[in-house]
Every structure is written in C-alpha cells, then in structure tokens.
Amino acid sequence: MNRPLSIVFIGLSVSSSWGNGHATTYRSLMRGLASQGHELHFIERDVPWYAEHRDLPDPEFCKLSYYENADEITRFEKEIVSADAVILGSYVPDGQLVIDRVARMQPRLFCFYDIDTPVTMAALDRGEETFLARRQVPFFDIYYSFSGGEVLTRLERDYGAQRAEALYCSVDAERYRPTGEAIEWELGYLGTYSPDRQPVLDRLLLEPARALPDRKFVVAGSQYPKDIDWPDNVDRIDHLPPEEHPSFYSRQKFTVNVTRADMVAAGWSPSVRLFEAAACATPIISDRWRGIEEVLPEGEAILLADDTRQVIDWLCNSTREERAAIGNSARDRVLKNHTGEARARELVATLRDAGAGTSHYAKAV
C-alpha cells in the first residue's frame, strides 16, 4: 500500500483570492490532496496586497508559511529537502531567484506548476523572464501545465522540459453547487480585469447589455480601470470571495467565460471559472478556442459565441428547459473529471511514477 506523500508548494498565494485565480486553483487541488491523506505545506511571499486581503489566513488543509524575500526561502531548507516533492508555481515574486535557491537544495523531486502556461511561453519567446528563465525549464523533473494538448509537446521540444504533464485547474465539488436562488441577472462574468480579455467581454456582455436595457447584467472582479463605460444595467462587484461564488453563479441565467489571448492561441486552457460555473449548473456562454469541446461539448454542455448577436438570441429565445439541460450536462462532466479529488489523483499518480514515495535518492541539478 502506498504511503501518503509529503508535498511542499511554493506559490503565488493560497491565503488571498484577491485579484488572482491561483488561490482557488491551489485550494481545490490541496483540499483534494488532503482528503486523500497527503501532508501539505504551502509557502508564499508575504506581499502587502495579499496581506491586506487575506480571505483564508488559516487553511485547514495545509500548513501555511510566509517569507519576506527570495533569500529567506532557505529558512525552509529542511522541509524542502525532506519532502517527497516540491512544486513551485508560476508568478512567484522573484521566481528566478527562488528557483535557483531551491534547485541548489536538491529536493527529491522538483516540479513546476504553471497556471499560466501560454502566457509564460509567450513571455519567454519575447525574452521576458520575470518569474521563470528559459534555462531553468530543464531543472524540473515534471513541468505541470495549466494547458494541455499541443502545449505539452512544445514544452518538451522547444523549451527543454524533461517531462510535461497537463494539470488542469479543478473545482471543489463540496463548495460549488447550485444554490436554488432566484435568477437576478440575465448574464454575468467573474474575473479580474485583463486588457486582452476586455474586448471580448465588451462583445459578449456589455454590448448585449446595451441592446437589452430592460434586463440586468453583472461583472464581478477587481482592477478594472475607472474609465470603462459601464452600461447602467450592469451591476459591478469589486471583489467576490470564493464562498460567495456559488450564489453568484446560481443567480445568473447564463454566465460568460472569457479567455486570455495567449491561452486562446495555445488552446486546451480551461480556466477555474469555467469549472466553477459548470459545477453550479449555470449554462455557460464562452469564447471559442481549440480543445474546449474536449472539456465541454458545444451545444450539449456549453454555448460558444462568435458575436454579440448570438448572445442576444440565447438570452431572448432560450427556454428554461434548454438552459437546464446545458447546465446539468456541464455539471455532470465536471463532477466526473474536474474536481479537486480527481486532479489530486492525477498529480499523485505522476509523482509516484517519477519516484515520489519510494526510496530517497540524491540527484544533481
């Protein structure tokens, strides 16, 4: 019988979900791992923004520690060296320095979890190495990628990854489910502002709102510029903590999924919001990208929109039964394949295949 694994995560943040989707991704995965008996330690940089907006300062599923700067990561050397695996995430502040310092400690298994893979690859192609240097990609025993499909081949062939594995985001099925509340909004969106997403949000939500001024819409998320011309019938919520997400989704007739441009170009990059909305059985209207139908089939479990007219047509002409069929189909698929428990099993299987939990060994980096 396999013994539980000890895993150290070094990531952007698990304590605060303000302005980042990493926290909900880590929380779902780590709850899944903890439910299967694994021992977890999450280490994050103590930065003012997250320190001022912590909505999970004492997680029940892991030990949580903070460090002040890249040099201070050495405080955790004993735990890093003794862990079965160390998983360092994308967008860690001063990530290059942290990676080099951890690599010198020679952890038993050293892995990277890229929750922004297409963005990372585009940055490396431009010569930008803010949190990961191209020379460091081969350091990792396994490069876990938020994106699957062709991206995995490119990571190994073009960037030198030893082994690339898809590790999609996931949803906490215990926390994300339909609440049964009355519909309040025709269409909603949850996501932090991003300049490359905004034109698509305009096309799929703001323009329909302008065309249907007697109906209510909503956009939740932080960091939106003050000069955006929000229609009067669009409610704005600056921040929505994760515990309020199910209620938010359940009060929408439809919800919009909008994908960053680099991820559209790469394909196979389902966001955590996609899985969360589906788990709440809220019918989803999404932009189109390669691989999305492998997650949620078009017309059966999701609607893919190319223009404003399609969105208006669905809002005005779909029946309750049609919407319920799409939402329930998406929920069934996500609960089967994309929960935190399912993702935890995938992660552990690849870690064990790479040697975690067996005899300890030394390796040169």
Rank of each mutant, 00 (worst) to 15 (best):
S82D: 14
G89L: 03
L347Y: 05
D238L: 08
I80D: 07
E72L: 02
N233S: 02
L187K: 00
I80M: 09
S145D: 08
Y26G: 12
L88I: 15
E298T: 01
R104P: 00
K78D: 14
E322S: 11
E300W: 06
E322K: 06
D232W: 07
E181M: 05
F146M: 13
D94L: 09
R210C: 08
T319L: 06
I326P: 10
D313R: 13
A277C: 08
I228E: 07
R197Y: 06
A265C: 02
S145H: 06
T192R: 13
T130M: 12
A182C: 00
V218A: 09
A103V: 08
T120G: 08
V234A: 07
A211E: 15
T308V: 04
Y67S: 01
W268F: 15
C111H: 08
K216I: 00
S269I: 02
T308C: 12
V200E: 10
D158V: 01
I99L: 09
R108C: 12
S247R: 12
A349E: 12
T153I: 02
R157Q: 15
Y249E: 02
V8E: 08
R215S: 09
L304H: 00
Y193F: 15
R104E: 15
T282H: 01
R333H: 04
S82L: 13
H245W: 05
V98S: 05
P246K: 03
V219A: 01
A103F: 11
G149D: 06
V92K: 03
Y66Q: 05
G89N: 03
Q223I: 03
F131Y: 15
E60M: 05
G188F: 05
V295P: 03
E79S: 14
P4C: 10
S250I: 06
D58P: 00
T255D: 10
S13K: 12
R251G: 05
R175Q: 14
V8D: 10
S329R: 13
E341G: 13
W230C: 01
